Computed example of a mutant assay.
Amino acid sequence: MSEPSETLDGVRYFDASIAVTLLNGIQPLDPMIAAVLRGLNLRIYPGRPADGDRSDYVVLDLNGVSIGVQRRAKALYLHADTTETSDKAVAFEVNGGGENDYPLI
């Protein structure tokens, strides 16, 4: 895959948010939100309409897992990469239809 066209690095975003908060006297971030922001990375890869892509490919990195999402002409594409974790399965639910466990190879 090519280089992302846009990225959001959670640590840099968090540090910038703290600086703005302190400079403007705004109430500090909730600790739970701060913890999530520090571990968040967001990458956006441009879609390829000629291949049937209907949107950019957006990848969210959080908690050692990468989740990719893209709208395509024939289906919604979801990709989960758990290679940095010790997970043995992924529990997944679509549209409230119940949770399904997928074993990881």
Rank of each mutant, 00 (worst) to 15 (best):
D9V: 10
R71N: 15
G98E: 07
D9G: 08
A19S: 14
A89R: 13
G96F: 07
R71I: 07
L78M: 11
T82P: 01
E93F: 00
R38Y: 10
G64T: 04
I33Q: 08
Y77G: 03
L40F: 10
V36Q: 04
D56W: 11
A73K: 13
V11W: 04
D87E: 12
D101T: 04
T83M: 06
G52S: 06
E6I: 06
R38N: 08
T83N: 14
G25Q: 13
M32P: 01
A19R: 15
G39P: 02
S86E: 12
I105V: 12
M32Y: 07
T21D: 02
N41S: 15
N95K: 11
R71H: 12
Y13P: 00
G39V: 02
T83V: 11
P31Q: 10
L29N: 02
T7M: 07
G98V: 06
I18D: 02
G10D: 03
G52I: 06
A80Y: 15
L37S: 05
D87K: 08
V65K: 02
R71F: 07
K74N: 08
R71C: 02
D15C: 03
L42N: 02
L76S: 06
T21S: 14
Q27D: 11
V36P: 01
I26V: 14
L42Q: 07
I105E: 12
V58K: 05
V58C: 08
I26Q: 14
G39F: 03
R38A: 12
A80W: 15
P4T: 00
N100F: 04
I33M: 09
P28I: 05
D101K: 10
A34N: 01
R54I: 00
P28A: 08
L23D: 12
R72C: 04
A89N: 09
V90P: 00
L60D: 03
I67Q: 09
S66V: 02
N100K: 15
R12K: 12
D56K: 13
I67C: 04
T82V: 11
V58S: 01
F14S: 05
E84H: 11
D51I: 00
G96M: 08
L78N: 06
L104C: 12
G25L: 12
Y45K: 06
L40W: 03
Q27F: 05
N24D: 14
E3I: 00
N100M: 13
G47Q: 07
I67P: 00
T83I: 09
G25W: 11
G96H: 09
T83K: 13
M1I: 09
P46L: 06
A19C: 05
F14P: 01
R48V: 03
V59Y: 02
P49F: 09
R72L: 04
T82Y: 05
S17A: 13
G10Q: 04
P28M: 09
R71T: 11
Q27S: 12
A50F: 08
L78V: 15
A34R: 04
L22K: 11
V90K: 01
N100H: 09
A50I: 08
M1P: 08
R38I: 08
A89F: 14
H79G: 14
M1W: 10
L76P: 01
L22Y: 00
Y45F: 15
P103K: 13
L78F: 10
M32F: 07
V11Q: 08
V11E: 10
G47D: 05
Q70H: 09
R12H: 10
